[in-house]
């Protein structure tokens, strides 16, 4: 996706520590929804067990994941934002 043009742009193999950090943060931003999806699809497996799961536990689980995702997203965006005023905002030229 947005990283595709990176190598073509005569990108140095060794980038500054800061921009290396930044790219890994962007990777995390990409991974976060995948993680969320996996965690929220976990309840599909609960029904397999015979005695099942109580609704209150399910509620606590779903909302805990939710809060965790929100917090992780907030932290990631904060981190991205700190380096974000760097010339290349999330990896594309302007």
């Amino acid at each position: 996706m947005s990283d595709a043009p990176e190598p073509r742009r005569t990108a140095p193999i060794f980038v500054e520590r800061q921009s290396y950090r930044r790219r890994r943060l962007a990777d995390s931003a990409r991974f976060l929804p995948v993680l969320g999806l996996l965690l929220w699809m976990l309840p599909l497996l609960w029904g397999l067990d015979s005695d099942g799961m109580s609704t209150s536990d399910a509620l606590v689980y779903v909302f805990a994941v939710w809060l965790g995702l929100v917090a992780a997203a907030l932290l990631l965006i904060r981190a991205l934002g700190r380096g974000g005023d760097a010339p290349q905002d999330d990896g594309e030229p302007r």
């Binding site: 996706m1 947005s2 962007a26 931003a29 990409r30 976060l32 929804p33 995948v34 969320g36 999806l37 929220w40 939710w66 995702l69 929100v70 997203a73 999330d90």
Partner: peptide, 13 residues
């Protein structure tokens, strides 16, 4: 929620 948390993928574009 997933779409928003995954803003980097689709919404940004």
């Amino acid at each position: 929620s997933l779409v928003l948390i995954g803003w980097w993928w689709i919404l940004r574009k």
